[in-house]
């Protein structure tokens, strides 16, 4: 193939990719016009959870660090947003920025320990971090309301003085922030720093040998992932207007990790679809099979492992991990 033809093909691919993304976003924007409040609030939950999954993918899929403590930063963001909502202002962007900062700071405080370990040890250390933060939420009653959670968060406002009560408007706000954060994550993974992350994942020793401070790279990614998880937490409470220790429980941490694996780690959009599937099975299907939700979830995991070896991202035919090497520097 000639260079010109290749450039043309690339341009075509980029245009089609952009058209595709635009169509998906337009469809998502149009949904509240056709759907009732329940499906829309379910979609809002899914979007918040999908952003959490995407942030974990940055850590797990792109940098090779599977974490079981990611719900901690999600929870820190959720509590921060709820506390600001109750005590300071219902203004959602303010809550979002505060949650982003709180998630990032929490990750910064705890991450330096975690990034020194690898593999299963990293998994377990992050689990410990997650459980300790969960315990804090449970026992710091004066701040967090303890096991009963924080009640009484007013509806969010985006423009001053106009509270968003209807599910559709809250959904549009959440969708807008989701798209924004997703685009930022995309930019990060496509940047030179993104390439460094993948290098650390694929061969940390080599990266260190060529002069990268890999611990520092991992720490930075950990903080970014924590900050985005915090932002996802603020989206979560924008919709539920209630936060309890269950929001940063081991269950959430495990579900989001599963979403990443089922969706296909290292693709960003795969984990988002994975998050949708996990929440749909967990929330919706379990109400049709009274009390047998865990059974369904378990079967879903087993099926996903065998049928989707590379997650949803694998169905698309792109070998995520391999591709990075083919098109490498």
């Amino acid at each position: 193939m000639t260079g010109a033809a290749r450039t043309a093909a690339r341009g075509l691919a980029a245009r089609r990719g952009a058209a595709f993304r635009l169509t998906v976003v337009l469809l998502l924007v149009a949904l509240p016009l056709f759907l009732g409040p329940y499906p829309i609030s379910a979609l809002s939950r899914i979007l918040a959870f999908a952003l959490l999954a995407a942030s974990l993918d940055l850590l797990t899929g792109y940098t090779g660090l599977a974490s079981l403590g990611h719900a901690a930063y999600f929870g820190v963001g959720a509590y921060t947003a709820a506390l600001i909502g109750i005590h300071l202002t219902p203004n959602a962007p303010v809550q979002l920025l505060a949650a982003l900062a709180a998630g990032g700071i929490a990750a910064g405080l705890t991450g330096w320990v975690a990034v020194r370990t690898h593999g299963t040890f990293f998994l377990m250390l992050t689990l410990a971090v997650g459980e300790i933060v969960h315990q804090l939420a449970d026992s710091w009653t004066s701040l967090t309301g303890g096991s009963n959670g924080l009640v009484g968060m007013p509806p969010i406002t985006v423009l001053p003085g106009r509270p968003l009560v209807l599910a559709g408007f809250v959904y549009w706000y959440i969708l807008a922030i989701f798209v924004l954060c997703y685009a930022v994550l995309r930019r990060i993974t496509a940047s030179p720093f993104g390439r460094t992350m993948r290098g650390v994942r694929d061969n940390e020793a080599r990266m260190r040998a060529v002069g990268y401070d890999t611990a520092r790279v991992k720490y930075v990614v950990y903080c970014i992932a924590g900050a985005v998880a915090g932002a996802a937490g603020s989206l979560w409470v924008a919709q539920t207007r209630f936060v309890s220790p269950a929001d940063l429980s081991f269950e959430i941490a495990a579900l989001v990790l599963l979403a990443v694996v089922i969706g296909g780690s290292g693709s960003l959009w795969g984990p988002c679809l994975g998050a949708a599937l996990v929440l749909l099975v967990n929330d919706t299907l379990s109400s049709y099979v009274a009390g047998r939700g865990p059974l369904l979830l378990g079967l879903a995991f087993v099926a996903a492992v065998y049928l989707l070896p590379r997650g949803f991202a694998g169905l698309r035919g792109v070998r995520v991990h391999v591709r990075t090497r083919e098109t490498g520097p």
Binding site: T60, A66, G119, T120, A254, L257, L258, V261, I262, S265, R292, P294, L295, L297, G298, L299, A300, F301, V302, A304, V305, P309
Partner: peptide, 27 residues
């Protein structure tokens, strides 16, 4: 069969088995 796919997939599989077994016990 999953041996080459890394810990995470095997952990996910055994977690799925755990959920199924625990739910059958509860039934």
């Amino acid at each position: 069969p999953l041996a080459r796919r890394g810990h995470l997939h095997q952990a996910l599989l055994t977690l799925g088995v755990a959920l199924v077994v625990a739910d059958l016990l509860s039934a």
